[in-house]
């Protein structure tokens, strides 16, 4: 078995208004960061995983993201493994 570390990012889907992101965007504008925009707030999860190979590790993380870590009705997820 090999040991991996997964880094998972979860964000609201692009077509869903991110009210937290909008609020932070306004705060940035007030600090004169008017060159910034489209702020999106998300979640960052790390976890350790043991698997036989890269493919199995990827499948397991994807499965966990779809079942529990994200709600695919409203969220997108992406992850890296190392």
């Amino acid at each position: 078995m090999k040991k991996y570390k997964a880094e998972i990012k979860i964000t609201l889907r692009e077509n869903i208004l991110d009210v937290q992101g909008k609020t932070i965007e306004h705060a940035l504008f007030q600090l004169d960061y008017d060159m910034m925009g489209n702020v999106r707030i998300g979640k960052y999860i790390t976890l350790d995983i043991e698997a036989q190979n890269d493919g199995q590790a990827e499948e397991l993380v994807k499965d966990a993201c779809q079942k529990l870590l994200s709600n695919t009705v409203i969220e997108d997820f992406s992850f890296t493994l190392e």
Partner: peptide
Amino acid sequence: LTECGLLPGALLRNKSL
């Protein structure tokens, strides 16, 4: 109930936060 799929959709943060 929305999380387990018995009802459709999801509940987001209130628009006003």
